[in-house]
Write a protein that binds this DNA or RNA. Structure first.
Length: 439
RNA sequence: GUGCCUAUGGUGUAAUGGUUAGCACGGGGGUUUGUGGAGCCCCCAGUCCCGGUUCAAAUCCGGGUAGGCACCCCA
């Protein structure tokens, strides 16, 4: 006989099992996100996890496709990739129905995404990412809204203004600065923007030296530019000043709406090349989480790669892993999430189980989520189990109940009992079984 | 892919190189064949793997494996 290979009980590297208590938290996070974005009129879409690899090759860096994705050949020989991000998919969907969709469109989705890399804090191999996008409007109003939505989501989670900061920039400003003000060629500008991306992680001296290799004596000017935190302090000399003015206007409009934790930060560039204008990221102000929670920007040319007429677009993504870290850090997860089971029926003896099942069926028709304890264990154990599972109400059924037709509805929190007839049970309960609830 | 750190019942932890590897939570049962969620009692279950040093290894060393964190990259 072959020796059986020892099976691991661990979930696959970088992925999570969602036990019911974890799933309750996930449902809370997702429903909070949905609630917030739907208030702005966004509608939900979805697509398959799997796409042809070419979709990503067309717009991403080669490395992402080759080294950081789950890519393989299907049985028909097609190169396919498990989606590492949602934006190419939604751009494809928009392009496909370009002619029949009426713009502007407000769409969102909460897809699970995969990347092949070593897991670390805030980054796993599988995560869920809220994606919110608006298509067909290229205006300051659209930009303002797309930054106001993350703010609204944070609000919905109960976050205060001082717990997170929204950093905004416009790629064109940085590009103008590099190419026209400093006179960098394309390669130099590209290298510098990659360097800017890394700035926060490098010691200051090292950053200066790396910059000096490209810029020589202009390094001082460059560093001074990056340290500007007030948009109005930007030099007026270089062209593209219109862009500076619109970004200032965006920041002002946000402030008018009470969104005051927005700062201009020229070092926000975002990794992907497809961004064409405004870019932004939302950070936790606590030093515990140094990764950005939301990131997005304007990408007016992406839909166009499908050979259709250009559709301007702006959107952002927000990963569940880092948001969960944020909520934990700031104590924003509801303390107790009740079970979706409204009522548990415990039975004193096996022979009363039939009565319990009939009662359960009756109550289910009235809209309750009811479970019947069929363990045949003693009543104390049944109650204990219901308690452990955070079920709010129980009814114990035995000879008395069968004789009188009255049931003792017990509230597990207050420990109070109310004797009621079958028909009165529902109206004596506080029920909200549509989704996860806070207490 | 690179570096650093960690590894004891299911979980969280304790144990100067020297007792039968201790405690708490958890799970099962009893106390109690109907008013119970407490208490008390009993039970379940562990030194990641392979090798080395030593009279003696959970403990020290080497190599694996797994996990965490950081880098790389960033969706």
């Amino acid at each position: 006989m072959k020796q059986r290979e020892k099976l691991s009980k661990e979930s696959y590297k970088g992925t999570r099992d969602f036990y019911p208590e974890d799933m309750a938290v996930r449902k809370y996070i997702f429903s909070t996100m949905r609630k917030a974005v739907e208030k702005f009129g966004y509608v939900e879409y979805d697509a398959s996890m799997i796409e042809e690899t070419g979709l990503y090759r067309a717009k991403s860096g080669e490395e992402i496709v080759n080294e950081q994705t789950y890519s393989f050949k299907d049985r028909g020989g097609r190169d396919v990739t498990i989606r590492p991000e949602m934006t190419p998919t939604v751009a494809r969907m928009i392009a496909k129905k370009r002619k029949e969709l009426s713009f502007p469109l407000r769409w969102y989705s909460i897809p699970n995404l995969f990347r092949y890399e070593r897991p670390q804090k805030g980054r796993l191999r599988e995560h869920w990412q809220l994606n919110v996008d608006m298509f067909g409007v290229d205006s300051i109003s659209a930009d303002v809204e797309m930054i106001a939505v993350p703010y609204a989501i944070m609000n919905e989670f109960g976050a205060q203004n001082d717990q997170f900061v929204i950093k905004v920039n416009d790629r064109r400003i940085t590009n103008f600065f590099l190419s026209e003000y400093l006179g960098m060629n394309e390669t130099e500008a590209h290298d510098l923007s990659k360097l800017i991306d890394k700035k926060e992680k490098m010691p200051e001296g090292e950053f200066f030296l790396s910059a000096q290799e490209i810029l020589g004596e202009q390094t001082e000017k460059f560093v001074a530019f990056l340290n500007i935190k007030d948009i109005t302090a930007l030099p007026e000399e270089f062209s593209g000043y219109e862009t500076v003015k619109s970004l200032a206007e965006i920041i002002d409009s946000l402030a008018d709406r009470g969104i005051t934790n927005v700062v201009y930060d020229p070092s926000i560039m975002r990794g992907f090349d497809y961004y064409t204008g405004v870019v932004f990221e939302v950070f936790d102000t606590s030093s515990e989480n140094n990764r950005s929670m939301f990131g997005g920007g304007r990408y007016d040319d992406l839909v166009g790669i499908f050979d259709v007429e250009k559709v301007s677009a702006i959107g952002f993504g927000a990963g569940d892993v880092i948001i969960l870290d944020f909520l934990k850090t700031h104590n924003l997860i509801p303390g107790k999430i009740l079970s979706v089971v409204d009522l548990c029926l415990c039975v004193f003896e096996k022979k009363y189980e039939r009565v319990a099942q009939e009662l359960a069926d009756h109550l289910r028709k009235e809209g309750l989520n009811v479970s019947v304890d069929i363990s045949e264990r003693k009543i104390a154990s049944q109650i204990k189990t219901a308690d452990k599972q955070d079920v709010k109400y129980i009814i114990c059924i035995g000879e008395d109940e069968v004789q009188t037709g009255k049931y003792k509805l017990k509230d597990m929190d207050s420990r109070e009992e109310k004797e009621v007839a079958k028909e009165e049970i529902v109206r004596n309960m506080e029920v909200n079984n549509e989704q996860t609830r806070k207490l």
